[in-house]
Amino acid sequence: MSEFLHMGGYAVFVWPAYVAVMGVVVILGIQSWRSQKTLTAEAARLKQTMGEEEQH
């Protein structure tokens, strides 16, 4: 295990590279998913309330 973490002496370079890439990938993914979710819900809610107003 420690040998794996050691990366043949290149740990200082390999791990930051992977952490940065996966970190950005995860953060960008979550942020995009969340904003899509909330905005779609908001649009649906607005449409519904407006539809109700129309019926009155």
Binding site: S32, W33, S35, Q36, L39, T40, E42, A43, L46, K47
Partner: peptide, 13 residues
């Protein structure tokens, strides 16, 4: 696709 959906929803709102 997520980002396009978000953008389209934002415009709709």
């Amino acid at each position: 696709m997520w980002r396009i959906k978000a953008e389209l929803a934002a415009r709709k709102i």
